[in-house]
Amino acid sequence: MLSEIEIYEYDEQWSKSFRLLKQVIELNLTDLVIKVEHVGSTAVKGLGAKPILDIDIVIKSYDVLPAVIQRLEKIGYFHQEVWSIEGREAFGRKDTLTPWDGNNTIWMEHHLYVCNQDSNELARHIAFRDYLRSNPEAVAEYDRIKRNIANRATDRADYTIGKTDFITKILERAIGE
């Protein structure tokens, strides 16, 4: 079976789309969140990626999670407990207009997570992103690895597993610095 995973060249539109999504999210959760972070490959200039944004909403504590879930539901997201892991709550979108901004905006595909500020998952996301942003050689290597894996992967799980060694190596460097 041929891979269904396509890696696109880096696109400046990814950052623009993130900033617009961030504005809508912050407007609706302003008093509940510390910050909204663009993480994952689309957050690294020059890195090829699947055109899907990864967004981490950072909260101070899990005490506010019920209110965050309620507010996200009001703008079209739903909590995906089955995809959530310790330190990272996953959210799905009801439709392409999510988050609902009153303007019927069709948003770029994205994955939305809510992380406690002390979450290990958040720390890993930020460390990996920041390491790549400051190491062009690592970006080039990761880009090559991702494209190679995408060409031979049979599904998304295979693709994800194929990237694990590189990600682990970078996190050891990034967190060890």
Results as ranks from 00 to 15, higher is better:
L21A: 05
E137W: 11
K35G: 11
A49T: 06
N135K: 14
E121V: 15
L97H: 15
R152P: 06
T154H: 12
D155P: 03
L21W: 04
V82T: 13
T164A: 12
L72S: 02
E81M: 13
K50M: 07
F128A: 03
P66H: 09
E86M: 11
G102E: 03
N135C: 08
I126Q: 05
I145Y: 02
K146M: 14
A123R: 14
Q23I: 13
I69Y: 05
K94Q: 14
W83L: 10
V58S: 06
L65N: 10
P99M: 08
S134R: 15
T30W: 14
A123C: 11
G40E: 00
I34Y: 09
I34N: 10
W100H: 09
V39R: 06
I126M: 11
T98Y: 02
V39Q: 07
D54P: 04
A150H: 04
D118V: 12
K74T: 07
E137N: 14
T105V: 12
I55E: 02
K146C: 13
Q80H: 10
H110Q: 07
Q117A: 14
Q70A: 12
V64R: 08
Q23V: 13
E141F: 09
A127R: 07
I126K: 05
P136E: 06
D95S: 09
I52N: 03
G76V: 09
I57P: 01
A140Q: 06
V68M: 01
N103M: 14
V114S: 02
R144W: 11
E37C: 10
R147P: 01
E37T: 07
E137L: 14
R88M: 05
S41C: 11
L132K: 05
K50Y: 06
Y142I: 06
I59V: 15
Y113W: 09
G40F: 00
I149K: 00
K50P: 02
I149N: 01
S41A: 14
R133P: 00
R147I: 04
K35F: 10
D63C: 10
D63Q: 15
G46W: 07
I75P: 00
I25F: 13
E109D: 15
K60H: 13
V24D: 09
A67I: 09
S41M: 00
G92P: 03
I85P: 06
V39D: 07
T160R: 01
L29R: 08
L132P: 02
K94N: 14
G162T: 01
Q117W: 12
D31Y: 13
W107H: 04
A49Y: 04
E26A: 09
W107Q: 04
